[in-house]
Design a protein around this nucleic acid. Structure first.
Length: 180
DNA sequence: AAAGTGATCATG
DNA sequence: ATGATCACTTTG
């Protein structure tokens, strides 16, 4: 297992979104316990041109962190109750981020943050250096499927149709099923 | 299917 | 200041 570095994060957002699948999200609590979970689902949000991306409307107090160099956390509150965890990617001044949509045993962006006790208190955390929040990889690259992103009905048809959501394929624990 | 919840952003 | 709108989850 090695921790992801700034070089890993400063690549193109779609590349990073795929590379994060199978990596391990790690969270150290104040009492020292470390929570870990493998990432199973991600989405790429790709700059001011992407009408689904929060940075589409430009730089604001909330989106400012997306303009930072890749490697820090962008965490915001959705629907008044769900903390959403994103990883900023790309070079400085390019507002891209990967939404972490699911981890093993906590599917759903709001559920995983609850399970790992991640909140806006960790907004802007540097995942390269932090001892509270980081990501590790063992180099495995699980098979995945691509699909349209969820919950972006406000975006242009074109951007809604982009397949920038990536989900690890479910593996049968025991049996294989063959098409007749 | 619809509520619940509060930050955020565009209006005025 | 006010109001619509949300990268959602749970409950019925």
């Amino acid at each position: 297992m090695r921790r992801l570095t700034e070089e890993d994060y400063r690549r193109d957002v779609v590349t990073v979104a795929k590379a994060l699948l199978g990596a391990t999200l790690c969270r150290r609590l104040d009492d020292g316990t470390v929570l870990r979970a493998r990432i199973t689902e991600t989405e790429a949000y790709c700059g001011e041109e992407d009408t689904a991306c929060h940075a589409h409307k430009g730089r604001t107090q909330r989106t400012d962190v997306m303009y930072a160099p890749g490697g820090c956390a962008y965490i915001y509150l959705c629907y008044g109750m769900h903390e959403m965890l994103n990883v900023v990617t790309g070079p400085a001044e390019r507002p891209e981020a990967v939404l972490i949509r699911g981890v093993e045993s906590a599917e759903g962006p709001g559920r995983l943050t609850k399970a790992l006790q991640i909140s806006r208190a960790l907004n802007r955390e540097d995942l390269v250096e932090s001892d509270r929040l980081w990501i590790e990889t063992d180099g495995s690259r699980p098979k995945f499927a691509s699909a349209p992103r969820i919950g972006i009905g406000y975006a242009s048809k074109r951007d809604q149709s982009r397949k920038w959501r990536f989900v690890v394929c479910k593996t049968s624990g025991r049996f294989f099923r063959h098409k007749p």
